[in-house]
Design a protein around this nucleic acid. Sequence first.
DNA 1: AATTCCAGCAACCGCCGCGAC
DNA 2: TGTCGCGGCGGTTGCTGGAAT
Length: 264
Amino acid sequence: MGRGASCSKEGVNRGAWSVDEDRILYDYITTHGEGKWGVLPRRAGLRRCGKSCRLRWLNYLRPGIKRGNFTEDEEDLIIRLHKLLGNRWSLIAGRLPGRTDNDIKNYWNTKLRKKVKEHDGEPQETESPSTIQSSVNASLGASSSHPMIRTKAKKFTKASILPQKLAQITKENDPSGAEEGAPLPSLQDQDPWNYFMDLDGGEIIQPNSQDSDYMNFFDGRMLENGVVRSGAWPSSSHSPPFKEDTFESLGFSQLLALDVLDSQ
DNA sequence: AATTCCAGCAACCGCCGCGAC
DNA sequence: TGTCGCGGCGGTTGCTGGAAT
């Protein structure tokens, strides 16, 4: 393979890691902690580049790594998350404890992609044509000849959701048809995935920006770590439609912002 | 038994964002 | 404000072992 500026020094081992190298790396990190990947190989006495050490640690040596077959639940979760997030492997991995992004990416490429492809090839009986992708495309005015868009998901620890949009989707998902001004129904007894699968990231979830109207609307009262804080809902008569721990129960400690690129 | 094919997986590459200076 | 280095991420490559021929 090619070069790699940070890994091009001569005398650097490449390829599969030996048991000794693993032991050295493991001992060093358990003693000194993660980070400082650039200087780690020299200090640890490894003839590897820092990136390689980081990858080896994160994908193989790190405690708590779950290896072996994926369960059906994990498969299902990956498929759902991939539908929602696309190839944001690190984010998907964050929702599957013990699984690494590389692991999930490989599993997707070798098994799930085919599985989903076969499934999608069958006639859709229940699924609405308004998939997430199409809704995003529609919001962008994208033509059908360019079904793929490039998205960039970013992590951020504070997020806001348009309350009007949440009220709308909450109302749409409420079969009883709550009246205007009535308290928003709780999602407690509903499948929260329904909401995530309908989310239009570019519309509901606030992209990274510090000076938008959304910020002003929320008057500085934000979701923190994806959790709606009590009292943060702008309308004093409405409780947040999401339970305090709704996101956390889904495994979401963070929300996502989808920045759509090449949108013109 | 030998060879070819292919799936699975570990590792690498290049790019990008972010913080430090 | 611009530059640089580091860390993180997604795409891709290439090795390995089992299945098929």
